[in-house]
């Protein structure tokens, strides 16, 4: 088996927990930026949550947006620096809960950025609370100790169903539970960066990702849960590909 060289863009060790999916996402981002020759032009917008750790590790300009506001921050940057390769690396809390308005309106404005949403079904940084958008019914968290109850908290919702209805360039969901899906996710991310490079419009790629620490599972069991449970509610597929034609 060939071992792929670590991208040079990653220049430090990072602080994520063992088995976390964020590191895989960051590596895929770095590989895409290098393969597309975009490193020098890249500006990362990370959310003040688990994605934050990426700000120190990637050798590019970066900004840590207020929690939930990454898409709005990225809008400000892309408008002032349209030549830059601006991407958002944020969680499902930022993008779908507190910042849903910012995400939707950035989509509505079709701002040509690449938005990467890590769906791990929880608020990781703050200690594993329920995520109203993505925690599955019955999943136990520190703010739903008996398991998520539909009566109290409603049901998880696939936000890509909303986002695909905007006139945007691209919406897709990948997953990290095996090599095949990681490679597929990379293709989606690359497509998102290419779309931006070609000035095509807003691209959003959501990635099903494990959080063994807060799920209180082993890394392997976390991957199994992703495939057997989470993917049932959050299917892996391309939701929208406008193909550059508006």
């Amino acid at each position: 088996m060939a071992i792929r060289k670590k991208p040079e863009m990653i220049n430090q060790q990072v602080g994520w927990c063992g088995g976390c999916g964020h590191g895989i996402v960051q590596r895929l981002i770095a590989e895409c930026c290098e393969e597309l020759g975009l490193v020098e032009k890249t500006v990362q917008v990370v959310d003040i949550a688990c994605a934050y750790w990426s700000i120190d590790t990637l050798n590019c300009d970066g900004i840590a947006g207020p929690h939930g506001r990454c898409a709005a921050v990225a809008t400000g940057i892309k408008k002032v620096r349209p030549e830059a390769n601006v991407y958002v690396h944020a969680g499902d809390g930022c993008s779908y809960v507190i910042g849903l308005a910012e995400t939707c309106y950035t989509a509505m404005r079709d701002i040509p950025i690449t938005m990467i949403v890590v769906n791990n079904g929880t608020f990781g940084m703050t200690g594993g609370q329920m995520n109203p958008a993505t925690t599955l019914l019955g999943d136990k968290t520190v703010s739903s100790v008996k398991g998520r109850d539909e009566k109290a908290a409603g049901k998880p919702f696939d936000m890509l169903k909303i986002l695909e209805t905007f006139d945007i360039e691209y919406a897709a969901r990948g997953a990290l539970y095996d090599t095949k899906h990681i490679n597929q996710t990379k293709k989606m991310l690359k497509k998102g960066f290419e779309n931006q490079r070609d000035g095509k419009g807003f691209s959003i790629i959501e990635i099903l990702s494990p959080c063994p620490t807060n799920w209180k599972m082993s890394p392997v069991d976390s991957m199994i849960k992703l495939e057997k449970e989470n993917e049932l509610i959050f299917p892996v597929r391309v939701y929208k590909d406008r193909g550059g034609e508006k």
Binding site: I63, G65, P66, R69, A72, V73, G76, V80, C104, Y105
Partner: peptide, 19 residues
Amino acid sequence: IQGESEIASMSMIWGAAAC
């Protein structure tokens, strides 16, 4: 930009100011 909220507007200007 006519923002979706004052909060989003502030985040937009923070991004632009950082540039």
